[in-house]
């Protein structure tokens, strides 16, 4: 598990005098709040060499959404969300020898559909910026299909692994927050037993994701 990077600050150039009118003080938070959200962001896969070899990149854009439930007057959260890659992962099968990659020209498509659940704490001393930390589990539904493949050579599987997340939510109004959300997920059992990932010794399908979350609710 890697160390999570926590955002230090996210300041808005808003006059201080206006803040008292825009944001609710911490002790003003409700006992429980249901807050739907949407996210946009990108993920950098831990199996960097494998993804670069097959797709030419180890980073992909994604979008998603979910529900964030805040308890204890804003101090605890539980969250579920699902995300999708903004476009399919399309590349070619390869051969790897001594670290050198040869493109075999056989199209390969992969998809990853993450679903995760996490709980954590919110440090809501400031009414305007609320850092948070959480842990949970992520489920990745992974498919891999190649031209000329037999059914047994394609992959369609789901694996679960741990995740940590953190970030900071900036309240831009009483009912709207914007958060910079960072998370690291580790999904083992899909990569590393064959294919290019085995050649590179990479067994983690997860990775580091960063996104902007638009939260509706207090």
């Amino acid at each position: 598990m890697r160390t999570m990077v926590v955002l230090a600050s996210l300041a808005l150039a808003t006059p201080a005098a206006a803040q008292s009118r825009l944001f609710a003080p911490a002790d003003d938070a409700p006992a429980i709040s249901f807050r739907p959200f949407v996210t946009v962001g990108s993920e950098r896969f831990a199996a960097s060499q494998t993804f670069k070899a097959v797709f030419g990149t180890d980073t992909t854009a994604e979008w998603g959404g979910g529900l964030d439930v805040v308890f204890g007057h804003g101090r605890v959260f539980a969250e579920v969300d699902a995300s999708r890659l903004t476009k399919s992962l399309v590349g070619d099968r390869v051969f790897v020898n001594a670290g050198q990659v040869f493109n075999m020209g056989i199209p390969l498509r992969a998809s990853i559909k993450p679903f995760d659940a996490s709980v954590g704490v919110r440090f809501n001393r400031s009414p305007r910026i609320v850092p948070y930390l959480g842990v949970g589990f992520a489920s990745y539904h992974y498919t891999e299909q190649s031209d000329f493949a037999d059914a047994s050579e394609n992959v369609d599987t789901t694996k679960v692994g741990p995740m940590v997340r953190g970030g900071a939510e900036v309240r831009v109004s009483r009912w709207l927050g914007v958060a910079l959300d960072l998370q690291y997920t580790s999904i083992t059992g899909i990569l590393g037993n064959g294919g290019a990932s085995k050649e590179f010794g990479e067994s983690d399908l997860g990775g580091f994701a960063a996104g902007v979350k638009f939260v509706v609710g207090r």
């Binding site: 199996a47 075999m104 992969a110 891999e144 050579e153 037993n193 294919g195 290019a196």
Partner: peptide, 9 residues
């Protein structure tokens, strides 16, 4: 030999 390697297989 021609089929090469995917990510996981």
């Amino acid at each position: 030999a021609l089929f090469g390697l995917g990510l996981s297989k």
